[in-house]
Design a binder for these strands. Structure first.
Lengths: 197, 197
DNA sequence: GAAACCTACTAATAAGTGTTAGTTTTGCAG
DNA sequence: CTGCAAAACTAACACTTATTAGTAGGTTTC
């Protein structure tokens, strides 16, 4: 039965991808060898290839899963009936929460996507660009409605998205404030930085 | 005379470090080979070793030069007589300008320092931590003096520093706004996000 | 012009890379 | 218990890695 096989197969594949995300984050894609990964999974390097096609495929899975989550949430937000600034805040909060709870994968997708190879690389870059443009669009609507101060929208996007990746430092720090407190502070600084008035 | 020798030696060394910074930024430290670098310098890989001791040394030079620049500026700012929020703004502007005009090296120091090896790695991490703590200190003074709103200072530092690294996207983008406009927008969003009131 | 040098080269080293072939072990279905 | 497929293993592959040794050409210093 392929059902059971696929099930077992894919659960081991998930372990591999999850361990890979951890290692890719810690050491980077290029500095992580298949033997490193194998050791972390508890298996010989060659055995990994019973579950995955290549090292490149692992990175693809990580990057596009993350990209899809963000794209889905963006679409939901675009279609919702909220003020522009509430939409921006919702997207910011989604980024923060993803960065807190799906840290490894999100961070890898953010920092290691350059090591994708075509056609995946072009595809990813296009998605990334589209995402940012649509987010900038929401901000521009907010400016038009005078909810948001007159700023360059792409610059605001750039600040927001990169500020969020600073949560990496939070993860590494010893005396962390709570996740809720972190989210709250980030929202205050960034959203208030945008609000008109 | 070692003077002349050192002079010529070091000018070629500067070329190597500069090309290395470009490649390390584009492809990452691990994915850049000495042969890649040699080709960009216009020389055989082995010849690089007449000028540098190792691949690791190149990264060290890049990282610590950048770190020293920032540390020096921080000290100057700490000793100046300005309001806390003006100090924060000055530091932010320094980061923005460095990121614009010394892009390759600053970006590498920011993203690739993990590939340093001890004792340089520990040293760098300590400097980084110290820098952030002192910047947080300035923000806390601003909060105490009610110039800055009541927020978690380390979180504010994290947002500021990472937002700045978003200038990477600005460098890559086609239709860039001007450097001055970029700086202005970033300062508005981030400093106003901090200001009390 | 000779001595000392810097810097380029070719060639080679040992270790590490992702990945494949072929074989043995494991664990479940009949 | 038998048979079969999934997944582990060992061994090897063809390359690439950073780096060293040894050497030749060119420039500077006396």
């Amino acid at each position: 039965m392929p059902a059971i096989k696929t099930n077992r197969n894919s659960s081991k594949k998930e372990v591999i991808i999850s361990k890979a995300a951890k290692l890719f984050r810690e050491k980077g894609f290029s500095a992580t060898s298949m033997r490193d990964l194998a050791e972390n999974v508890g298996v010989e390097a060659a055995s990994l290839y019973n579950h995955i096609r290549s090292k490149a495929e692992i990175l693809q899975e990580i990057c596009f899963r993350v990209a899809n989550q963000f794209m889905t949430h963006l679409e939901e937000t675009e279609n919702s009936k909220q003020s522009s600034i509430a939409k921006v805040q919702s997207i910011l909060q989604f980024h923060i929460r993803q960065m807190i709870h799906n840290y490894e994968a999100v961070h890898v997708a953010d920092r290691e996507w350059k090591h994708l190879t075509d056609p995946y690389l072009s595809n990813f870059k296009t998605q990334r660009k589209t995402y940012r443009q649509r987010l900038a669009g929401i901000i521009e609507q907010g400016i038009a409605k005078k909810e948001i101060k007159k700023i360059d929208a792409p610059t605001a996007v750039l600040i927001m998205l990169h500020a969020v990746s600073g949560i990496e430092s939070w993860h590494r720090s010893k005396q962390k404030i709570s996740a809720e407190h972190l989210e709250e502070n980030m929202v205050i600084i960034l959203v208030e930085g945008l609000r008109a008035g």
